[in-house]
Write a protein that binds this DNA or RNA. Structure first.
Ligand SMILES: [Zn+2]
Ligand SMILES: [Zn+2]
Ligand SMILES: [Zn+2]
Ligand SMILES: [Zn+2]
Lengths: 134, 134
DNA sequence: AGTTAAATTGTTATAATATAACATTTTGTA
DNA sequence: TACAAAATGTTATATTATAACAATTTAACT
């Protein structure tokens, strides 16, 4: 059992915003949205984001410089993340597939490196966007 | 057989620099290094980088905002990339493992999305850095 | 309760990464 | 030659992220 992590005020404000967003949010869009709640400076946002990423409540979509709430209750520390990204509508979904995570967690390359973390991003077209085009 | 892609002047200058670098290069470090060769503005660098990525001569390491030459002769279009990144010395290596690429290329999640591209980044400690710490 | 260290916050300034907009030139091809 | 596509040059600006420093809050331990 992981110890419950109490979020600080800024962390909670920013997590709530990201958590209720249907799409990944960018840092300055977050800043704009929380200014009415007293968070005025980029650093306040980035510090909260850093912490939330560290404890696994959110993940950064590296190819988009955007942040999404963890959609996988068992992934409390973000050491093994996988996402699908629609290149048409930009919908992002966290992939929760135990075969995939087992395969990647145990993956060993010939270079002798010891991996403790990975991030995987798949790109393509989501169902909706496929049907729109046909 | 893929048609040979002749690089333009700026593309060639920037590719040569990246190709001979032992480590991923960042855009503004590239800019600094090619100023003596007549490339003066960020856009000139970014345009060449975009093209080089598009044709698969280089890849972007998304978590580092840096660019590395393709180390895999068969990967001429960057639709399936995997890298190992040492979090201590920042050494980056392109992984060329046919099991891995087969597994990921044929991976299907339950969400019905059709993937045409992926990018995977592994993080850990390289051999050298492991032995330094012991 | 008082002491202390760690975490968080607040604030201003600045660094680093990337694109918009527009004009011109070069290259490939009919 | 004529045309279109690709590449270049240039200035300005947008976007993403961190440095540096001071103050405050929180948590843990006597
Ligand atoms: Zn997650
Ligand atoms: Zn879509
Ligand atoms: Zn490659
Ligand atoms: Zn290393």
């Amino acid at each position: 059992m992981r110890k419950m992590q109490n979020l600080s005020k800024n962390q909670q404000i920013i997590f709530d915003l990201i958590d209720k967003s249907p799409e990944p949010l960018k840092a300055y869009s977050i800043l704009f949205n929380v200014q009415k709640r007293g968070i005025k400076a980029p650093l306040q946002v980035y510090r909260a984001l850093d912490k939330l990423v560290e404890i696994g409540k959110i993940h950064k979509i590296e190819s988009r410089n955007a942040f999404i709430a963890c959609q996988n209750s068992s992934c409390q520390i973000s050491k093994a993340t996988a996402f699908s990204i629609c290149e048409s509508c930009e919908k992002v979904t966290e992939i929760n597939n135990s075969n995939l995570s087992k395969y990647l967690t145990s993956f060993k390359d010939k270079n002798g490196m010891k991996y403790n973390k990975y991030n995987l991003e798949f790109f393509g077209l989501c169902k909706k966007c496929i049907s729109k085009k046909s």
